[in-house]
Design a protein around this nucleic acid. Structure first.
Lengths: 329, 329
DNA sequence: CCCAATAATGCTCAGAGGGAGTATAACGCG
DNA sequence: CGCGTTATACTCCCTCTGAGCATTATTGGG
């Protein structure tokens, strides 16, 4: 009711906004949060603070020219990492994010891609394997045993416990789609959907905060403060989707690299293995790389050619993906 | 400098946020903006206010459970439209959005899909063809003449006028990619990139506000207040991308429809024509629809079967798009 | 020096999917 | 009845893609 009443008066033409509330609503503040990703030695890593329990974040201020420039300035100054690629993820402002009921923070989250560097002295940041937080997402060495041993039984119990038959069916469907059961394929992009399903089922430690009643034992995976683990899941999901139609992987690679290194990087992000020969074919036929003439002896076998990213492709074409039968004539 | 200094202190672990600034920064407020889309009689329409110069928007309030629920409550109460599908678009907070330098509004924009209904009495909303605002985006009846007659000459002059050779090249590339010149295909998804290029080139009327110096004549297309036209472009871009891998078109369709109506709807959104037979094949082989047994006499020719959306597909599979050569074994 | 292990690299093949066109069916209207 | 109009059914061909086989180039150990 209160919501509805206030909504009526609040809903107005945007032109009125040109004189915004001089009386800003009390308790609303804006925050920037960064999911900063690197891939080192074939492992996906994310920059953390506070004993690996939080993502970098800072207040948005009037001095900042834009959200993105504020974030970029902060991160680069704090970490001395070149932020090649920055992309807005999502804006969160739910109640029950771990704050008190009277306080409200709007968090604008960003995904950033970089290359890992050793932290400077006195630096309280650290890089962490992101599967530390979401261990069920790594399918590179097969389906993690915890899925069959812990997650699915608990989720099925959660589905059974639904009050109505429709809800039971709905939950069962979500389990099947997100975790790829009943003959369905595993879809690595559904990171957020999986996290939210686990959260609803009470299997994520964050969901049990302030709810002291009995609930199923939480699934493994390190906890983060506030809803940062959810933001991390959002970032991983976005990145896993993005690498399929935009050459952003190269932001994570050194200047020169072998095709296997590139493949390992993609696999680290996607959390699953790719077919080696076809991967090479894809990369080469799209002309994403060019030879440097050098080769690497690092490997245990035949030396591999070193390649370099062809930055020109960013101009040559934009996106490829097409699903509509568009007429060319 | 000021930015950098304030950044250092502001950049902090998120855990500290659990006690957010009780002293919210002055002048920052949060706003919700909706790009509400319908397709009527084969034309794409967007809900506007203020003499068709603004999108619906309203302040985000503490009473709202989440950003999305706040938006949903407002729109449904204001317009009496069922908001089937709602999706967050982007959060804007740039300076120079048309506000004074001391005032800052964070705008969280949303895309909503609905079916058009007659506005109630006293309703100040109205539905407008979205190509009224972005006329260069409609390629259903061929390339709009204004592109060759007005846009490209002006853009080329803009590219020529760049201070450095690198920037000239960069601008030329952007023109070619976004407008599909030099043998490149037209990519209907680059709505935002095109708008921003035109904006930078001073061809959008909004870009000339408060800059009284001489600049090229603005391109046609109706103006909106603040940066609402940019938000509209963002919404169209998102929708054009989304219809290719997620069955959201059906949110815009009546309960039953012919395949041609569905096709016209897609074409309205994409701004280009699709191949009729292949479109049917796509829709049917993906099992997106089922027959109702009825047929429609409305058409000038043979009656068409009426179909209905199979909502089950939303559970059967999630996303299809795959570009990585993923091993199944 | 030969051999096994390890990678890199080259090539083939079959099936699916997508772009495009042809052919036929069912209506209204003059 | 013939014509225009739209619906619907097939066909063809080429590219893309998943998958596997074969060959080449190293290193390290007997």
């Amino acid at each position: 009711m209160t919501t509805a009443e206030s909504a009526t008066s609040a809903f107005r033409a945007a032109a009125d906004v040109s004189e915004p509330n001089a009386h800003a609503p009390p308790g609303i503040a804006a925050d920037l949060v960064a999911v900063l990703v690197a891939v080192t030695a074939g492992e996906p890593r994310v920059l953390t603070l506070q004993d690996a329990r939080a993502l970098p974040s800072g207040a948005f201020e009037l001095a900042h020219r834009s959200l993105q420039s504020g974030l970029r300035a902060w991160v680069e100054q704090q970490t001395h990492h070149p932020l090649g690629y920055v992309e807005q993820l999502y804006t969160f402002a739910d109640r029950d994010r771990g704050l008190g009921p009277e306080q409200r923070v709007i968090s604008i989250s960003y995904l950033g891609l970089t290359r890992e560097r050793a932290p400077g002295p006195g630096d309280r940041t650290s890089w962490q394997d992101w599967y530390l937080y979401l261990p069920w997402e790594d399918h590179r060495v097969g389906v993690p045993p915890m899925i069959d041993a812990i997650i699915l039984p608990n989720l099925r119990a959660f589905a059974e416990g639904a009050p109505t038959a429709a809800l039971r069916q709905d939950r069962s469907n979500r389990i099947a789609v997100t975790f790829g059961t009943d003959g369905r394929p595993w879809n690595e992009e559904l990171v957020l959907q999986r996290y939210e399903l686990l959260y609803e089922a009470g299997l994520i430690a964050e969901a049990r905060r302030g709810k002291p009643e009995a609930s199923p034992a939480p699934v493994q995976g390190r906890c983060m403060s506030l809803d940062h683990r959810r933001i991390l899941a959002t970032g991983i999901a976005r990145l896993r989707a993005k690498i399929k139609y935009h050459p952003v992987v190269f932001e994570l690679m050194p200047d020169t690299f072998t095709l296997l290194q590139l493949q390992r990087c993609v696999e680290a992000l996607a959390g699953r293995l790719v077919h080696k020969q076809n991967f090479r074919r894809l990369v080469e036929q799209q002309e994403l790389v060019e030879e440097t003439g050098l080769s690497s002896q690092e490997t245990g076998g035949r030396p591999a050619k070193l390649f370099r990213f062809r930055r020109e492709v960013l101009f040559e074409r934009a996106i490829v993906g097409t699903k509509l039968p568009i007429s060319r004539s």
